[in-house]
Design a protein around this nucleic acid. Structure first.
Lengths: 165, 165
DNA sequence: CTTCCTGCAAAACTTTTGCAGTGTA
DNA sequence: TACACTGCAAAAGTTTTGCAGGAAG
């Protein structure tokens, strides 16, 4: 129920954002917004597309991309670029700032909060002439499962795995 | 001169890596290796291709990609995935572990070293079941120039910038 | 009625791969 | 001689864009 209220509040925020810009409220935009906020964690554009369609709405891939950018501009969604060629999105929980830890092997992603790191981060940004706001911390590592699947430090890559063609 | 020695040492390491696997030493591989170590900072695959060609060697894009993977496998090059669809590469300086701070606006990238963050990072990884080694920390933020180019917090995106098509 | 949006399909980009010819060992 | 490597070109995967029709205000 609290979730429901949150979703409505965010949806309302989106509507206000649209109107304040003279942009139009369309069924696709509403459906997209609702599905984004109905999802738990990080989802990529393709998953968003599936989710919206699964909810019974017709929507095209192009519209998903276009409006995800809109949600990001509205400050309702974060675009997190981690692994290779894909960006994932997550809705912004009010006041719930967190960073990401991702496995480069399987793509598993974990959120974490670390006030200590956040403080140092601000300092590092300042030292290098970066804006203190709008930072996003990402740690790429390997989960134990993926790390175990590889060879030890003396032989980084199993023979043969590297040969191509 | 010290740089020259370093380059030769790395090249030799690459040769030993190749031979230890029964892989062949080709002109393309040597040229690629030399150019990577002749470059200063982070370069993407396209820039590597240009650099090798500018040095007077014929090489194809496919070969660049295939052999960049090889250099990564040899532990001589790091593949850093930051912005959208592109990965950048940097050669590994002996013992010079660092992390990356990148501007999501202009792509400017800065390296930094922070023992404090490194320590916390290990702790966070342990807490979430990630391997303590092989981590790569990336901070996505905005340099002051790019941050200034945007609107204030009350109006995240200038009107019109978001409209599409 | 104005003009913003959407869907489709094609384009843009980066990276990968099949195949046939070339070069290393 | 054997087979690994290269180049080319096509393919693959994700995101963007032009255009014409359709809908919001």
């Amino acid at each position: 129920m609290s979730q429901e209220m949150t979703r409505l509040r965010e949806e309302d925020q989106f509507l206000r954002f649209l109107r304040s810009r003279g942009l139009r409220v369309t069924g696709e935009r509403l459906a997209l917004c609702r599905q984004i906020f109905a999802q738990h964690g990080h989802i990529d554009a393709e998953q968003v597309l599936s989710a919206v369609r699964a909810a019974g709405h017709a929507i095209s891939r192009a519209t998903v991309y276009r409006n995800l950018d809109l949600l990001v501009a509205a400050g309702l969604v974060h675009k997190v670029r981690l692994g290779g060629n894909r960006a994932v999105f997550e809705h912004v929980h009010a006041g719930q700032k967190h960073d990401h830890l991702a496995c480069r092997g399987c793509g598993r992603m974990v959120e974490f909060v670390s006030p200590g790191i956040a403080a140092m981060l601000v300092e590092i940004c300042r030292a290098h002439g970066f804006a203190p706001a709008g930072n996003q911390l990402q740690i790429l590592g390997e989960c134990l499962a993926c790390a175990g699947r590889e060879a030890g430090p003396h032989d980084v890559v199993p023979a043969g795995e590297v040969a191509h063609a």
